[in-house]
Structures are given as C-alpha cells and as structure tokens.
Design a protein around this nucleic acid. Structure first.
Length: 766
DNA sequence: CAGTGAGCGAGCTTCCGCTTGACTT
C-alpha cells in the first residue's frame, strides 16, 4: 500500500492513472459528488445566511467507508478531482466528510490523462480554491431554492408531483414557444423558375440547368414570364470561377456528439451517452462528458502519423481548436479515440458505429481543407431583364472530405454540387424547357432531442453531464413527448414551357412529415404559461447566463456568495408567497360546446391525473361526468365530437364463458375486462368498435401466454405460482413477486418451500 | 398496473450537477 492516496472522480480514470504512478501511490475514485442537500427537505437554513445542510446520501456511504479505509495508510492525499467548479467543490466536500488534515492534502489538476501530464500535476500542487467552492455552493443553493419553492406551487395550482427548475422549465419553454410559432405560421407560396438549356456548338446531350435569380410571387406573374420566354434569345452574359475552401468541424464535445449521432445514426441522446460510456469504460475513447474541443499534444501527434500513413502528407493539417462557448469549463479533452491508430473496435453494432463516428470526426479535424472551384454563370434573355443563374462546383482536392462531413439539421435541399459544361461569355443557349414550380415557405422545425440540447448549450443552460437527463426529465414529467407527425398532402401548380406549348398541371406533394420530434403536452403548455406569468425572470432565456456571471464574480473573490443569494432570494421568495395566495387554479380549461343529449356544457381541462373532458359544471349539486383524453389527443385540438365519443366507454363488447366482456381505456391504454381480469388491446384494435370475436381472441391469447410462462402452480390459500421472468424464475403470490434463492430448482419446489421464501421475503422488506 | 377526476385532509411529490453499479420481475 502506497503512502500517497490519489482521489479522482471516475473509476476508469483511477485505473489508468494507477498504471502511471509507482507503488507509492494508491488511486481511488469517489464517484462524483459525495455529499449533497437532503432530498426530503429544503436543507437550507435561510435565517443563518442560507447555510446549506449537507448529508452523505445512503448510496454514497459505501464509497466513504472505502475512502476512509484507504486514508488510514496515506501520508499525503492528492485531491485530483476535475478542474472545474463542481470538481473543486467535490475536493472540498472530501476534506470535510473524510476529516482530512489540511496539511496533508494537496489539490492537483490535469486536463489529459497521460503520464507526463500527471507527473507535472504532482509537481505543482495547490490549495483548495475556496472562492470556487463558494461559487459552486451558490449554484447549488440557487437551484435548490428555485426548484423546491416553485414546484410546490405547481402541485397546488395545477397538478401534484410536477416540477420546475432553472434548466428544465426553460427547456419546456423552448418547446412550447416553437409550437406556437408553428401554429401561427402561414405558408406563403411563390414560383421558382428553372430552365434547361442546350449550349450552342456543343454536343446534343450537353445541357445547362439554371434558376431565375428572382422568385415570382403569383401564378399570373409566372405565366407572363414564361410567355415572354417564348420568343426570347438566351445567352451567357458572364462566367465567374472562384476557388473556395471548406474546413473540418472541431472534434466532438458531448453536445456535438449527441447531435451527430442523432442525425447520422438515429440515436437518442440517452443511447449515445450509454454507448459512449461503454466505450469509455473499456478504454477506447476519452471522457464523454466534456465541453472542450481541445486535443492533447499526444493526440495531435498521433493523428498526424495516422493521416500520413493512411492518406499521405498532403492531407495533414494540424489544428488546435478553441472553444467558442462562454459557459465552457474545459476540465477534459474533446471526445476522441484513446488510440487513434485503431480505426475500428470490437463490440456490438452501436459501439462500432459510434466509435467509427468519433474516429472519423477526430481524424478529419486534423486534415487539410477541401479545395473547391465554384462557378457562377449568368444567363440573360432578350425579352426580360431578369437573369438566370447556373451554379457549378468542382472538387479540386478532397482533403478532410475523404473521411467525414458534418451533417446539418436542415432538410435536404436541391443544391447538390454539380459540374457545369465548359462555358464562355457570349455563348448562345437553346431553350429546351422552362418551368415554374410553386414552392411554399417552411415553418420552423420542431426540436429533436439533439437540436434542443444544441439550443440549450447555445444559451449556456445545462452541462454535459445533464443534457441527457434534462431531455428525459421533461418527458417523464409529461411536459413534452417525442412523437412522429403524419404529414399531409398539398397541391401545387407547375407550369411548363416546352417549344411553344405551355402546360399547367396541379401536382401533389407530401409535407409536414416529422419523425421523433418533441411536442409540448397540455400540461407542459399550462405549466409554461403559468410560470411565464409569475416567474418571468427565471424563465428568461438569459437568466442562467446572468447568474453564471455572478458565480464567476464569486469565484474571482469579488463577491460573497451569501450576498448574491440574498439579493436573488428576497424578491423571489416574495413572489412565491404572493403567487401561492393570488393565483387561481390553472386547469387550461377550454369550452368545447354543448352536449346534445343533456344540454350541458362540455369542457376539456387538466384533471388530477392528466387531461380530461367533462360534461356539466364542477360547481352545483350535480356531479359532472369525466373521461380521460386518449394518447395523441390534446385540450387545444380536441373537437366536441371527439370529446363526446370518449364517454362511450366503458362499453359492453359481448359475453364469453357466461360473463360479460367490457371495453374501456385505462391509464395504460385500451383494455378488455372479463371476470375481473384485464387484457390489453393490440395497436390495431379500436376500443369503440372491437368485436366480440376479437375480444375473445385477445383473452385467449393472453391466457396462453400466461400458461407458457408458468412453471408450476399451487392451489390453496393463497394461490402461488412459479413463473418464468426476464431475470429467471420467480414466485408470484398475492400480487407480489419474490426471488428464488440461487441453487434451488424451480421445477421441483414444494408449496411449503415457496411459503418459506415468501415469509422470509416479506420480513426482509421490513 | 387498469373504471380516478368534486372536496375534505392525511402524506407525498420537487431542483441541478458530479459519478457508476445494484437492482430488477
């Protein structure tokens, strides 16, 4: 056992570093934060200057015990947590929680996990930066105050178990406002004029495609223009050729990795992070939660060598990128392969694909620019001053494009690179075909998980370690949902001039189809407008950036953290109290119309368990009738007819084995009920129309499936069954499940043995 | 884990940022 104890945050890092340091050093990891405010209450003593009350959460007790044990043998403790605000605080908490003697503690930092970097760090120890720790405490306390004071207002005024926070509420706001933009968007159409020409004096099949520089507003204008083309002469009035360059994108950060994996591989941000974690733990990539585009000198040198060997010296261009984002803390390197020589890795398909993406992006970032030649030709015509433009692009040297090209969020346009035929000024052109095509302006696009992360990063909201959890939180709280949108068919006009004939036809195109986009839910919309009304400052897109500035001042020792929190908290808490008493219940209620049967009013609104429709008034003696909205329906869009249809359930679908079959929609979707048992409907089944035959089929299918997973069954009180589950056989009785101890044979177990396990199982729970 | 939804009142929910296993039915 060494005399030196080094503590880092990640166990994978600990393993690597241990190899670099001699036997005098033992390296342990603390697995991130080891203390925090208690989850169960505010844990901030406001009267004592916002004193935070920290505790060691139960899941961290084991880590603390381990570290204390390691501490006994150590003479010097090297606190090697990450070099950022959170890392500094972790070191401070370690000193506090482990009772480390300040005299024996040394704080060290390094940005790359290489032997020289670590030895250098050990040569330059420092003390814990208390100002930086204070900045972290301010961050922590602010987030707790906002989250734990605003959320309860939502429970009271909207629905229990909702949440609000500095980060998540702004993420929801982005989604809600984007939806509003889309709703108020009115597509405008214009006519795009394209022409196909033959170049005089060249072979028959040499043609030139060009587009009119200007779009024409109306059909009439377009027709008039085409008419003018009939007798017109066309010629090349100018040709300009310019060299152009394209540069590679910087290596990956967490956010850009999530975006590219989403666009190129179709991964959700959670999937990307899971696969990246696997690659990191097996030592194949560097740390995956980073905001830095920095590459180590070793990585730069290796990339150079790999590129020289694979593609040749003229493909090399070594670059060090600098981070543009102001909020970046740059405690780590960019995400890159640990060993750039390795072009491929073993593993499952996802690991291979993500690694491939990371390898290509990293290598491309160190390759030379692509050199292009762009040609623009102007075509004039005798009957109109409007110019046609033809664009061509030739790749002279592919450079980094040999390996990798970054994708964009925009839909594919029709501006692919193409070559122009040889042209010179004065060349005469024969008109083959001129076409006016009606085009529509595009509404803004809904966010994908990854494009929302991109937006949040631009606003400086959230951190690499929280992007994926934020996306999951807003969906778990049912503020937003990821879904596809069916497109619709739209008519457009196309007018074609060929020879002297002009034809107009109405064509159809699909539009508005979207896959895997984030849509706001009714609850998300209501919560957002409530928060916008009462807590505009927190909902401000610049709120985080503004408080970050103050945290920086605290970190720089120019401001006291308790003062900063006080000046935020005083008006904020006042607003909390005021909102609690002033604001009414928010249900997002919308009047849909009158029920023709009862003559009562029909509303859609948010109920205790989610969106509902209601017939009749809440006030008064008579109880209103309620029905929950179905998946895909919203308060905003549901019609009176759709709302009334929801009251047709539960309905009788027939009978089976002398018992009635009823159909209804529950919390988990549509179901058939028979003799007290529930059977879920399939995707293709409609609860409003399902036949008796189909309902019976569903019941029998479920019975058969249950039969198949049953290993043994014991009659008697209580009935017990041994079932096959995802994690092996288990015992089920009285609606509870119990594990079977290792070594028992589930086939040969007796009822008594099962009862024994059940009684022991329930004892353990107490 | 399944038919709720008013209102009463018990007790509960909730934040952001750092890190991975232990655990599951």
């Amino acid at each position: 056992m060494g005399k030196n104890l080094v503590i880092v945050e990640s166990p994978a890092k600990a393993k690597t570093i241990e190899k670099f340091l001699g036997s005098e050093y033992s390296v342990k990891s603390c697995f991130g934060h080891i203390r925090d405010l208690s989850k169960n209450n505010l844990s901030i003593d406001i009267d004592k200057g916002f004193e935070p009350e920290y505790e060691i959460p139960p899941e961290k007790r084991k880590v603390i015990t381990e570290l204390k044990k390691a501490l006994k043998d150590a003479e010097v403790v090297w606190l090697a947590t990450d070099e950022d605000r959170e890392g500094e605080a972790i070191s401070w908490h370690l000193v506090q929680a482990l009772n480390i003697d300040q005299g024996n503690a040394r704080r060290i930092v390094f940005h790359e996990i290489t032997k020289p970097a670590i030895l250098e760090a050990i040569k330059n120890p420092r003390q814990i930066d208390n100002h930086l720790v204070d900045a972290q405490q301010a961050r922590r306390v602010l987030d707790r105050l906002v989250g734990y004071e605003v959320s309860p207002i939502l429970w009271r005024k909207i629905k229990p178990a909702l949440s609000a926070g500095r980060v998540q509420s702004v993420a929801v706001r982005l989604i809600v406002e984007r939806e509003e933009e889309i709703r108020s968007f009115r597509a405008e159409s214009s006519f795009r004029i394209t022409g196909l020409f033959r170049v005089a004096g060249q072979k028959e099949d040499v043609t030139l495609e060009a587009e009119l520089a200007k779009r024409l507003k109306t059909r009439e204008e377009a027709t008039a223009f085409l008419e003018k083309c009939i007798g017109a002469e066309f010629q090349v009035s100018g040709v300009e050729t310019k060299p152009a360059r394209k540069s590679p994108a910087p290596p990956f950060t967490t956010s850009t990795l999530q975006q590219e994996a989403s666009r190129k591989l179709g991964f959700s941000v959670a999937k990307t992070m899971m696969v990246a974690q696997q690659l990191y733990e097996s030592g194949r990539i560097t740390y995956m939660r980073t905001d830095s585009v920095h590459l180590s000198n070793l990585a730069l040198a290796t990339a150079k060598k790999v590129i020289a060997e694979k593609y040749g010296d003229n493909y090399i261009k070594t670059r060090q990128f600098t981070t543009r984002s102001k909020s970046a803390q740059e405690a780590h390197e960019a995400i890159r392969p640990t060993y750039l020589e390795q072009e491929m890795v073993t593993g499952d398909a996802s690991q291979k694909r993500l690694y491939d993406l990371i390898w290509k992006r990293t290598i491309a970032s160190q390759m030379s620019e692509a050199i292009l030649e762009k040609t623009v030709a102007e075509i004039s015509q005798s009957n109109s001053p409007e110019l046609f433009i033809a664009r061509g692009e030739v790749l002279r040297f592919e450079g980094f494009l040999k390996v990798y090209l970054e994708s964009t969020d925009e839909e594919e346009g029709d501006t692919g690179s193409k070559m122009l035929p040889p042209l010179k000024q004065g060349d005469r052109l024969m008109r083959q075909l001129i076409r006016a095509t009606e085009r529509f302006s595009q509404s803004p696009a809904r966010y994908t998980e990854a494009s929302l992360v991109k937006k949040l990063e631009e606003l400086g909201i959230g951190r690499p370690s929280t992007y994926a959890p934020i996306i999951s939180t807003i969906q778990k709280r049912e503020y937003a949902e990821k879904k596809d949108k069916e497109g619709s068919v739209r008519n457009y006009t196309q007018i074609t001039l060929e020879g002297n004939r002009m034809d107009s036809e109405v064509k159809q195109e699909r539009t508005g189809y979207e896959k895997g986009k984030l849509f706001p839910t009714d609850i998300g919309t209501v919560v957002n407008s409530f928060l916008m009304k009462y807590f505009e400052n927190i909902m401000d897109y610049h709120f985080t950036a503004a408080v970050e500035k103050e945290f920086d001042e605290i970190a720089g020792g120019r401001k006291a953290w308790r003062d900063m929190i006080r000046s935020f908290y005083t008006p904020f808490h006042q607003k909390v109290k005021e909102t609690m008493s002033v604001s009414g219940k928010q249900s997002g209620e919308r009047l849909l119309g009158t029920d023709p049967v009862s003559g009562k009013k029909v509303y859609a609104k948010i109920g205790r368990y989610g969106p509902i429709v209601q017939i009749g008034e809440s006030e008064g003696n008579e109880k209103p009738r309620f029905a929950g909205l179905q998946k895909g329906q919203s308060i905003e869009e549901i019609s009176l007819g759709q709302a009334l249809a929801l009251f047709n359930l539960p309905r009788k679908a027939g009978s089976y084995e002398d018992a009635e079959i009823t159909v209804a929609i529950g919390r988990f979707g549509p179901y058939v009920r028979h003799q007290g048992q529930f059977y879920s409907l399939g995707k293709q089944d409609d609860p409003y129309t399902i036949s008796e035959e189909r309902a019976i089929e569903i019941i029998e299918q479920k019975r058969k499936k249950d039969q198949e997973r049953t290993i043994r069954q014991f009659e008697g009180e209580p009935p017990i069954s041994i079932l096959k589950g995802k994690y092996g056989p288990y015992i089920s009785s009285g609606g509870k499940n119990y594990r079977i101890p290792k070594g028992s044979d589930p086939e040969g177990m007796t009822r008594e043995e099962c009862l024994d396990i059940i009684s022991r199982g329930s004892k353990r729970k107490k």
